[in-house]
Simulated scan of single mutants.
Amino acid sequence: MSQNQKTVRPAAGKLLRGNPVVAVLRAGHASEYAPVIAALAAGGVTTIELTLSTAGVVAQLPLLLEEFGTAVDIGVGTITSLAEAVEVMDAGVKFLVTPITDLAVVEAAAQRNIPVFPGGLTPTELFAGWNSGATAVKIFPASTMGPGYVGHLRGPFPSIEVIPSGGVSIDNAPEWIAAGALAVSLGGPLLGDAFRGGDLAALTQRARRVTKLVAAAVAARNAASGAKK
């Protein structure tokens, strides 16, 4: 992208801004998704990433989008090519997530005003995704860096928005929010055994817990920011 060309950057969805938690779902088949999504939504987690590595995702997308409507933002992750991105955008997904920094995917989503969260780890990868129009960049795998990495990135890139993914737990999610993350992305620590016959009521309780913890962290961060002004 030319330095003289203005970056097109889609805004984060309203639901994610209201509760900055992304649930990452991996199952044996996408037909298993609906009851788990409903249980998460009951606990306040309404931004749902369906992984493209799960069988049947593209076929199930229209059904899931119709079933949950505007109550849940359904996006697709594990996108590794422009063709995959275009296919799911055409199906109506609300956001895209990639495990890699593919600038063609970022720019295609930005041009269609679809929030996109490209994955990366190094400053070079993360800034490249951000500079190409990412809504936020996904620090992946986040467990290798820790929440302090957000502050280090903000030194050279003060406006960059980040979402940690990979190794984020319910208990340490507030630390990432306190460090300045736009949101947190959780898979196994939140989903637990939900796709192995686990108690969906327990999943709803975990969703409520992370929602409460993250909301408190956002409030504390906002209060601290206001006190500095």
Rank of each mutant, 00 (worst) to 15 (best):
L103D: 02
A108R: 11
R112L: 06
L103V: 14
A85K: 04
V93I: 14
L96F: 05
I100M: 10
V86P: 04
A108T: 12
T98L: 10
P99I: 01
Q111D: 14
R112F: 05
V105H: 01
A109V: 03
P115Q: 00
T98Q: 06
P99F: 00
I100H: 13
A110V: 04
T98N: 05
A109Y: 02
F117A: 00
A109C: 06
A91M: 07
V93W: 03
M89D: 06
A110N: 02
A104C: 08
Q111V: 12
P99Q: 01
V86D: 08
V88I: 13
V93P: 11
Q111F: 11
A108Y: 11
N113Q: 13
A109S: 12
A109K: 04
P99T: 01
V105S: 01
E84R: 08
A110D: 02
P115S: 00
G92R: 04
A91C: 09
A110R: 03
K94N: 12
A109Q: 05
A104F: 13
A110E: 01
L103A: 03
V106Y: 08
P99R: 01
D90C: 06
L103Q: 07
F117H: 01
D90F: 01
P115V: 01
A104V: 13
I114P: 09
F117T: 00
E87I: 13
E107C: 12
N113Y: 08
K94F: 08
A110Y: 04
V86T: 11
R112G: 02
A108M: 08
